[in-house]
């Protein structure tokens, strides 16, 4: 086989492409069979819904590739919303200042996670389950069960303003730019090589001069800041800051990252697959809603997809191995 052909075959075999093709297939089938999926309005909603998930999924992908996890992201989002709301109520009326403070807060919350994980050497799963509760709790402490909703309409409409001539919100450009940044860091910079190395074998990475702890620390900071950015968007999109904003979103993000082909054990995965998975889940959810499939069905589908994404390749591998062994066993007596 010629080298380019082999390369194409290998590329088609990667999980990223499988997810991407599934996305296209769902979009096409949806557009042909469900009224409204082809409409620009539909895509506007898909994008609006996907933006916060995508923002958080970007750093989450890198974190999971290093073999860690951050379950506190939705609580960081919630606490950011609460603090923004409280600041607004207390008279901070400059939007840039609010955004800057929110991002700073997110970075600090992420740094706390990072400190516990890298400084004290604690498992990130346990630490971020702890801060999941802690940050969400603090969100309630700050805002109680109040909702802050009296933001200026110019802010809230600006946040979801479509790109000229389309229905797609301009925020997608911000997401796209950040996606490019994260993709370059992960796939084309020395740092990214270190991330894969430490995800597979942290000790060998250390022996090769990778500063495992420092790198992971900054990833948690980035995760906090990006979750805060998602929180800012959430507040403005729904024109409402509440302590329970985005609760449960962490599982949706983790589901998208895993469905996108990132190994939960670290060391494997790519950003393209994750973004495709975020889009796939968004399109599927909205298309099914339009098709009057009860929203609940989607929960079942999300779960099944997630399981299929890990079970499928494993079972296929086991079957291949069994077939191969049967073949060698039947051949060997004659050889």
């Amino acid at each position: 086989m010629s080298e380019p052909a082999a390369r194409i075959r290998r590329a088609l075999g990667t999980w990223d492409v499988v997810v991407l093709l599934a996305l296209v297939a769902v979009a096409v089938v949806g557009a042909l069979t469900v009224d409204g999926v082809a409409s620009p309005r539909f895509w506007r909603f898909v994008v609006l819904e996907a933006i916060p998930i995508a923002l958080i999924a970007l750093p989450m992908t890198l974190i999971v590739i290093t073999g860690e996890i951050d379950l506190s992201v939705a609580s960081v989002l919630g606490l950011t919303c609460s603090v923004m709301g409280q600041l607004w109520v207390s008279g901070v009326t400059s939007l840039p200042l609010l955004i800057a403070l929110a991002l700073l807060l997110g970075a600090v919350l992420g740094a706390v996670n990072g400190l516990f994980v890298t400084g004290f050497g604690l498992p990130s799963l346990a630490v971020t389950i702890g801060t999941l509760a802690l940050y969400r709790g603090l969100a309630y402490v700050v805002l109680g069960d109040r909702a802050v909703a009296n933001y200026p309409t110019t802010w809230t409409t600006t946040a979801i303003q479509p790109l000229p001539g389309t229905t797609i919100p301009w925020m997608i450009l911000v997401v796209a730019a950040l996606a490019v940044v994260f993709a370059v860091v992960l796939h084309a910079m020395p740092v990214g090589r270190g991330l894969y190395a430490m995800g597979n074998n942290a000790e060998a990475a250390r022996f090769a001069g990778v500063d495992v702890r420092l790198t992971k620390f900054w990833l948690f900071v980035a995760s906090g800041a990006m979750s805060a950015l998602a929180g800012v968007f959430w507040t403005l999109r729904f024109a409402s800051a509440r302590a329970d904003n985005g609760s449960g979103l962490e599982l949706a993000v983790v589901a998208a990252v895993l469905l996108g082909g990132v190994s939960i054990f670290g060391g494997r995965g790519a950003l393209l697959g994750v973004l495709a998975a975020v889009a796939l889940l968004g399109v599927l959810r909205n298309a099914l809603q339009l098709a009057y499939v009860p929203a609940n069905t989607l929960t079942v589908i999300t779960g099944s997809l997630l399981i299929a994404s890990v079970v499928g390749p494993n079972v296929a591998g086991m079957l291949r191995e069994r077939l191969r062994r049967r073949r060698t066993t039947t051949v060997s007596p004659s050889s």
Partner: peptide
């Protein structure tokens, strides 16, 4: 355990300490 990242390719392993210089 220490010398190599077994799951990564020969190329990635060879270049790992030099990734900044490359």
């Amino acid at each position: 355990q220490q010398g190599l990242v077994m799951e990564l390719s020969v190329e990635r392993n060879t270049n790992l300490p030099r990734r900044w210089r490359l």
